[in-house]
Design a protein around this nucleic acid. Structure first.
Lengths: 148, 148
DNA sequence: TAGCTGAGTTCGAAAAACGAACGCAAGGGA
DNA sequence: TCCCTTGCGTTCGTTTTTCGAACTCAGCTA
């Protein structure tokens, strides 16, 4: 078994972890959620090599996380990369990373951007909760049971 | 700028994304949250090469996500890898991945394990909410503002 | 006609990952 | 005492990825 074979692992945590755990993929998603859509812009803002960028975009297209959308530029048809609904649903993953980063990796309160709830101006936070009683959960509150 | 230089990026999303975005790191954290603690067990369950496993464990130790805890085995002192408080706080990241995986990558409802709230038996779900009004947020509800 | 632009592709060099073998310290059994 | 085992790495030669600079290509624009 190599890294790639996790893609077929029957585990709803393992497969996403393997997909997003490839180098550059999380940083690429960050850039997309920050509004970047075009090949050249990914390449220049992230300084990723062009061939790897091509590969990662194709993987996310194949997985249905991104879609190619045509647009006009200088009278020519070009394509940009946009999130699908499946892709937009990754928002909690990125926000969980950011919530963690703010708590544990920001000694100087530095941030490269701010996030606000459009309706009330409040901050944004990821959390885990119980689907039944709605209480917030930590790892210690959760019982893990192997599949039957 | 190469991949490694994101480690010093002044971005509370970018730095965690670069750290956990190295190959194997997310899968390693999954295994840790499932209870694995020892070198041999990581190596055999994940089929990662030993040298890369050593490297990834050391990075997580340096970052303070893991700590080495001594224990006795056959009368000898050995060490196991355990989450620190900082590491345990990554739980929402993993749960967000799993919540996404259950929705988008589980056509057959397959799972390799089940999670339950110890107190009420309910399920586990990651979500994003507003720190002020408490409402659940999606990407569209959030305004991104570049740093001043 | 020549140049520019966005979006890739190609290819040789460098870095990372692989995997099998080796090292090592301590305990147990013969 | 000698040898085997166990847990946890380290080494090293090979394969895979990544890098980065150059190249391609199509259609505008001058």
């Amino acid at each position: 078994m190599s890294y790639a074979s996790f893609a077929s692992l029957p585990c709803t945590l393992g497969r996403p972890a393997a997909l997003l755990g490839e180098r550059w993929t999380l940083l690429l998603l960050r850039q997309i959620f920050l509004g970047t859509r075009r090949f050249e812009d990914f390449q220049s803002t992230m300084e990723i090599s062009r061939s790897v960028l091509t590969d990662r975009l194709n993987v996310l297209l194949q997985e249905g996380v991104l879609k190619r959308v045509p647009y006009q530029h200088d009278g020519r048809t070009r394509h940009e990369y946009r999130l699908t609904e499946k892709g937009r649903d990754l928002y909690p993953v990125l926000m969980a990373l950011r919530t963690w980063g703010e708590k544990w990796m920001a000694p100087d309160e530095e941030e490269s951007f701010h996030l606000h709830h459009r309706d009330c101006g409040g901050g944004v936070r990821a959390k885990v909760e119980c689907t039944e009683c709605g209480v917030e959960l930590t790892a210690r509150d959760v019982q893990v049971t192997a599949r039957a």
